[in-house]
Simulated scan of single mutants.
Amino acid sequence: MRRLKRDPLERAFVRGYQFGLHGKSRDLCPFTLPSVRQAWLNGWREGRGDQWDGLTGTAGIHRLNQINAVG
């Protein structure tokens, strides 16, 4: 049985979220395709917002599970 691959935009969003949550720069975005890059940046913004709200470490575990469960 073959596993279905996840949507590339969703994967980019989650990767961007993780970068933002860890306080990394948005200049580190590895994507050049505009739609995928936009999804990554949206995730990055969401992650930065959660970092600023203090949702890092054990306080943000429930949020990270919600982000990873999308789709």
Score class of each variant (00 low, 15 high):
residue 31 F to I: 00
residue 51 Q to E: 11
residue 36 V to S: 02
residue 12 A to V: 03
residue 65 N to S: 13
residue 69 A to K: 15
residue 36 V to L: 09
residue 49 G to D: 11
residue 60 G to C: 13
residue 12 A to P: 03
residue 46 E to Y: 10
residue 57 G to M: 14
residue 49 G to Q: 13
residue 23 G to Q: 08
residue 8 P to N: 06
residue 12 A to W: 00
residue 15 R to A: 12
residue 5 K to C: 02
residue 22 H to R: 13
residue 4 L to N: 02
residue 70 V to R: 15
residue 46 E to Q: 14
residue 42 N to W: 01
residue 55 L to N: 12
residue 62 H to I: 13
residue 11 R to E: 09
residue 12 A to S: 03
residue 37 R to M: 11
residue 18 Q to N: 11
residue 53 D to P: 03
residue 20 G to A: 07
residue 22 H to C: 08
residue 10 E to Q: 08
residue 24 K to Y: 11
residue 6 R to G: 05
residue 57 G to R: 14
residue 42 N to T: 09
residue 23 G to S: 07
residue 19 F to T: 02
residue 8 P to L: 06
residue 9 L to M: 09
residue 59 A to V: 09
residue 2 R to I: 06
residue 8 P to R: 11
residue 69 A to T: 12
residue 48 R to S: 09
residue 41 L to D: 01
residue 45 R to G: 02
residue 31 F to V: 00
residue 58 T to V: 14
residue 41 L to V: 05
residue 15 R to M: 05
residue 25 S to R: 03
residue 22 H to A: 15
residue 3 R to F: 08
residue 39 A to M: 02
residue 64 L to T: 15
residue 40 W to L: 00
residue 68 N to D: 13
residue 46 E to K: 13
residue 54 G to K: 12
residue 24 K to R: 14
residue 67 I to H: 11
residue 7 D to G: 03
residue 44 W to T: 02
residue 32 T to H: 05
residue 50 D to Y: 10
residue 51 Q to S: 10
residue 9 L to P: 00
residue 17 Y to P: 03
residue 57 G to F: 13
residue 63 R to G: 08
residue 29 C to M: 01
residue 61 I to P: 07
residue 33 L to D: 01
residue 45 R to E: 04
residue 58 T to I: 13
residue 39 A to Q: 03
residue 30 P to V: 00
residue 42 N to E: 07
residue 3 R to S: 08
residue 67 I to K: 12
residue 66 Q to R: 15
residue 10 E to K: 09
residue 3 R to C: 05
residue 25 S to V: 07
residue 18 Q to V: 06
residue 57 G to L: 15
residue 32 T to A: 04
residue 48 R to F: 03
residue 10 E to L: 12
residue 11 R to D: 03
residue 27 D to G: 06
residue 71 G to D: 12
residue 23 G to D: 11
residue 40 W to N: 00
residue 39 A to F: 01
